[in-house]
Amino acid sequence: MKEGQTLTFAFMDPPFESARTSTFFRLLDAALDAGANVNVFAYEGAVALSFAHQSAHGNSIHGRDAGEEAHPLSREWIAALQRKAAHCGVQFQWINCGLCVDERGVNEVIDGCGRGSPADLWKFASAADNTLVIGTRD
């Protein structure tokens, strides 16, 4: 890749609902592996991915308490990617659609995730080398 390339992703799905979510995070991880700067615009349910109060739980069916279960949380995935980007020396920007946040009541997000509007998606896309939109599906 050329030095300092940037990719923008738009994503719409909430956590714990669709296989698209884990595919999306695999893509973000691979983008950082490739040395790319990453921009994310989270729209609709995807704004809950960074919700700070996501809470891990035990699972009696699995026979594991909360510590043993180590339940995946998308806010921790985002934080892990933020740390990876810092380690790799690339940028990792995350903007949530603010109106989508308000209507879902997920205003408290982890550090490093901001609030914006579709204008930010356009700014991200205009400045990036390429953009991938992952739309939701019924």
């Binding site: 890749m1 050329k2 390339q5 990719l7 595919t23 695999r26 893509l27 691979a30 983008a31 592996d33 490739a34 790319a36 080398d129 390429n130 991938l132």
Partner: peptide, 9 residues
């Protein structure tokens, strides 16, 4: 999945 990233780049 890195195939997608290489294509984008």
């Amino acid at each position: 999945i890195e195939m997608v990233i290489q294509a984008l780049l």
